[in-house]
Write a protein that binds this DNA or RNA. Sequence first.
DNA 1: TTGAAAGCGCTAACAT
DNA 2: ATGTTAGCGCTTTCAA
Lengths: 342, 342
Amino acid sequence: MISLEDVAKLAQVSPATASRALTRPELVAEATRERVLEAARTLGYQPNVLARSLRQRGSRSLGLVVTDILNPFHALLAKGVQDVAEAQGYTVLMFNTDEESAKERRAFETLRGHLPQGLIVVPTPATHLNLKLLPNLPVIELDRASGRAGAHTVMVDNEVGAYRAVSHLAALGHRRIGMIVGRLDISTAVERHEGYRRALLDAGLPYRPELVVPGNHREADGRAAAHALLTLPPAERPTALFVGNNEMTVGAVLAARELGLRLPDDLSLIGFDDSRWAQTMTPAITVVAQPAYDLGALACRTLLNLLGGQTVPQSVRLKTTFIERDSAAPLTPQPSPLAGSR
Amino acid sequence: MISLEDVAKLAQVSPATASRALTRPELVAEATRERVLEAARTLGYQPNVLARSLRQRGSRSLGLVVTDILNPFHALLAKGVQDVAEAQGYTVLMFNTDEESAKERRAFETLRGHLPQGLIVVPTPATHLNLKLLPNLPVIELDRASGRAGAHTVMVDNEVGAYRAVSHLAALGHRRIGMIVGRLDISTAVERHEGYRRALLDAGLPYRPELVVPGNHREADGRAAAHALLTLPPAERPTALFVGNNEMTVGAVLAARELGLRLPDDLSLIGFDDSRWAQTMTPAITVVAQPAYDLGALACRTLLNLLGGQTVPQSVRLKTTFIERDSAAPLTPQPSPLAGSR
DNA sequence: TTGAAAGCGCTAACAT
DNA sequence: ATGTTAGCGCTTTCAA
């Protein structure tokens, strides 16, 4: 390990001067600076960030805590954060919590020991409490809002996106539109549900609680929820489904398949969040797309601005995009037992 | 920030004793230990890993460098590594290189400053060179082999998996089997290509270089390669395709679609590496599946064993699994211009 | 513009 | 079993 002292010796200056030449060049005479830089280069000097951080009481690193790194949406968020952080010379310490409070807690504890400058977190209902472990740390909430007073958030316009999707289904003539919604203690689920509700209202359709089934964001939950909805008696069964996130959309499509329902003939379906999978499926799935990478990148930029002392907006919403593909079609009159018995 | 000194004061012992009580309890009298632990708890003490690592010349952290975190295969590798590392109290510093040598170099430089105990890397052709930045660091190569003498590697049996897939196609009666292969300066591509070659040989089929098209692992490359192969004159066009990785498989399927070729009637196709996408596509794609999570977990366990001074096998291969689905079918006689003109 | 000296929080010799 | 002391590599007063 080459230390600054080695560099200083070679350049025939004191360690203090060597340090200045490397980190605050303007404080050092041109000739001296050159000599130090040259020495550093020949020795292949790499600063020991541990020592530096210890001295400065803070490392040039950021924490990133996501809830499911295997979810491509989160992978994109993470890439957005990483790319921006790296460009600014920050190291990202990334943790995955699987939506478990205990894991989040451990992540925060570990993080604390590394003295990060700031934190970007996809909050869970436990985040509010766990954040007490990191007092005075600048935090950006990403994708969801924990509800902490004064929290900085970077999200998408969930309500608008959901409204658009459900309005589309209504305009296609569907009157029984079901929703598979996320956990209602998570802001995205609440907002998307609100968009659903408002779209029904504006379309003059009744809100039927029995057509709204919550799930825990996973494929299996989407499958179970869809199964429940699609096995209702024919007169009550929804003819269209709006699904609140990407993983549950997969489950819903599989459930429909298992029940022998063809998309879009027997069932129209729109998902929230786009994916490779949604694009290449047969039929391709109509979705409300989110700018995941941009979301991550913006969160990181916001955090860095905050650290730089700039004033940043409390809350930012990026726009979703409605992408019409082939999984939602006009309602076709269906043979019903009643019609058959007339 | 609560320091060890605060804890020591409260427990009425020296900092050294407090340190011992926390990290090497057996060296401290029961009563003292209790007092220290109690003090640490009441103060909410969290060790400053920076100071500790500086002192110990090494942090309880591992480097993980992957080439494409957006690729679900790599995301799974990463999760496997993370889960094992976390269970052993190690922090993972993860970097993404996008297969770019410059990014890998920067990742290694950054990593060096953090004094990691070891490194797990998905090597690129540049890794050999770049690793000179991290002399004396224990390294595990994951998924691919760089060719460095004495390197520890954790991989799958690429050659066997490819052999199985191509043999399957041959057994279905296909005689012109094309391969879309990765970059031949990467070991996985070489090995899968070798399996392809050997399967053809054993099936009594000629190896035709014109039916082997290399690509750079991305969807776009797979698409272009497939397009080139599938627009060959009918008599030369392959009736089956073996694709060397997951992203290129997507591209190949899309290319076939664009050309109006239906799977498996007009074209049989088998991909390497399973995915959500391959499972739910219509038709579902027959694949050679890899135990990605296990691969990552094993690499991490191997590294930790190595750090623990145990002797570990130089090279480990995990088994692939052939999963037969619906994208490969027996060759059906096709209407050809020649047949028509007879 | 440069150097000397102190100290970030921790642990490992060494001493008792 | 515990305390004293020194020092990891760096930056930052303070002084020259």
